[in-house]
Write a protein that binds this DNA or RNA. Structure first.
Lengths: 349, 349
DNA sequence: GTGAAAGCGCTAACAT
DNA sequence: ATGTTAGCGCTTTCAC
């Protein structure tokens, strides 16, 4: 018997021929259908092995009307800050989780000048579902998307009327509350804050967490300055806070980058951290590790958040029941910028 | 005439019906074939517009035997350092460039425990080409891949026998040379270096650039300590350098992370930067911006590098002539860690 | 320049 | 449990 030399990738048909069964049976084996005898399956598997057969996704997808592709939608403006470590970790979590499934990750940079192009592509039946990560997480320009395509968002939407979409977010309110509580616990008597943009959920939520906590402690919540999450504006907000001339011994900053900016101002002004002022940031990024002093901060489970987004979407696609909203816990990382004041100081109040 | 209500995405057939032409003609228009009259094209385009038709990739790919998909292969270990800003920028460049083409970006996390799975997928005709970005760029476990699939690597391969593959890299040798030259130019009389791992091309090349430059200047090239690119080992290498007891007034560090570690040691030891010792890093990452003092460093065109990788691969796929090796220029960013010594000091030697 | 016909490799009823 | 029969939506000869 002469072995025909067949060019290109082996097809299901060739596997069937070699195994001496029909294509249907091979298909069933490949798709792990239970309606195949173990013997048949074994023969098929062996044929697959010797041929090095890999199913053709295009054909499979055309016939099954499923693409097995999940789009990762990244608004173009977000792509520019792709280097944001938090964002990168979320993507990593998504990719890692999906690698273990049958789904493929399709990165789509959404042109903001021509959003129709992206919408068309996504709605054109080229993907089974979409994951949307936006830097300014409030911007849900793809909210409408979720009506036509299973979609999971990273970060909660700013608009309450989008509550019918699926999203995964970290618990910014609780994180900020824990940070503030920590400052109080180490003996701070007045805690100021540098907040983020109030039109972005993380900015809004973190300010909210701080506010609730200081109020609950019976303290005033007037020591607030805002910035845009950049080190520069963090520094400026710090100067404004200092310029008020009011005393405070604790400071919660809505993200580490602004905190680093604030720290540089404190250094210039000769204000010792944590002795004169204890500082806590948010995000646990590079900045917090390398700052002088290292920054106490709130760590977000970025990788897990990404993995959870992927899990929720896959569950959704496979018809398993899923929660619309998933809030991931954060945790406090205590470092030198907020080391507990010693008892002597504590007693002196 | 009653308008049939057709569920799902519109098909080419429906466009043909509405335009009153055959499917072939619609296909030609969609694929920009020149063999269509302008009138016919206009009618078809209008039908496409009103229907909101988007070609089905799976069908197209099945029929044309092209996938229009490019795989971005990320070794799993690299994915763990996904947050590496350089790496993230390269990916950004790739994604941005591809967004302007007909190609789709498929992120593949290559399991290192089961490399066969990835190889099968890639060689199974599911993608038209691959882009490989590896953190330890020397590791070309996917070198063999390029024999079966058009592949472009980011970073040069360590093995010379892989010269038949396509790759894009930044000019590490020249960058290190410029950095070292800069130290000499500002008046340094002896320049030490903290090098990276010698089994990684960037580590090797940057040491080479330093070595050439000091030799050309007639200086000795013995003041070398190596680290693994981490801040911790940068600090340790710095201590070893100091422990030698030999004087030097210039230091080139193979990356910014190690430079930051070195800087912290110098601070501890009371060695003023740049007064006592001028320091230059490499990478121009976050660390270099926020260090104390800000670090003079070499910027790599990360986004452009990614974009170039994408361009080379697309050219390759479309049969256009391409260069096997593309070396991207770097540039010097002068900051406080190497401000020129003033004339008084210069004169005193 | 345009249409008709024949698949691309696979899945999914429907038989058996 | 397995085989048979139709397509999935598109491209691509090949006629006209």
């Amino acid at each position: 018997m002469t072995q025909e030399v067949i060019p290109g990738a082996p097809t299901l048909e060739q596997v069937a021929a070699l195994a001496g069964v029909s294509r249907s049976t091979v298909s069933r084996v490949v798709n792990k259908s239970p309606h195949v005898t173990d013997e048949a399956a074994a023969v098929v598997l062996e044929a697959i092995e010797t041929l090095g057969y890999v199913p053709n996704r295009a054909a499979r997808s055309l016939a099954s009307r499923k693409t097995q592709v999940i789009a990762l939608v990244v608004p173009e403006s977000t792509a520019r800050v792709f280097a944001d470590p938090f964002f990168a970790s979320v993507v990593q979590g998504i990719a890692l989780h999906l690698a273990a499934t049958e789904y493929t990750l399709n990165m789509v940079i959404a042109s903001e000048t021509n959003p129709e192009k992206t919408r068309r592509y996504l709605m054109g039946g080229n993907v089974d579902g979409a994951l949307v990560v936006s830097h300014h997480s409030g911007d849900h320009s793809y909210a409408r998307l979720s009506q036509a395509l299973p979609t999971v968002f990273g970060g909660r939407p700013m608009n309450a009327d989008e509550r019918d979409s699926y999203f995964v977010d970290s618990d910014n309110v609780a994180g900020a509350a824990v940070a503030t509580r920590h400052l109080l616990d180490i003996g701070c008597r007045r805690v100021a804050t540098i907040g983020g943009p109030q039109d972005m959920p993380p900015g809004f939520d973190r300010l909210e967490g701080w506010r609730r906590t200081v109020r609950e402690a019976g303290l005033d919540d007037s020591l607030v300055e805002l910035g845009d999450f950049s080190p520069r504006q963090g520094a400026e907000a710090m100067r404004r806070l200092l310029a008020r001339g009011e005393a405070f011994d604790g400071l919660f900053v809505a993200n580490d980058q602004m905190a680093v900016g604030a720290l540089s101002v404190l250094r210039e002004e000769g204000i010792a951290v944590p002795r004169d002022l204890a500082v806590v940031g948010f995000d646990a990024d590079y900045f917090s590790e390398t700052s002088e002093p290292p920054l106490t901060t709130i760590a977000q489970p970025a990788i897990e958040l990404g993995a959870t987004m992927a899990r929720v979407l896959v569950d959704l696609l496979e018809g398993r029941p899923v929660e619309r909203v998933t809030i991931m816990p954060t945790h406090l990382l205590v470092r030198a910028s907020s080391r507990r004041r010693d008892d002597a100081e504590e007693a002196s109040r």
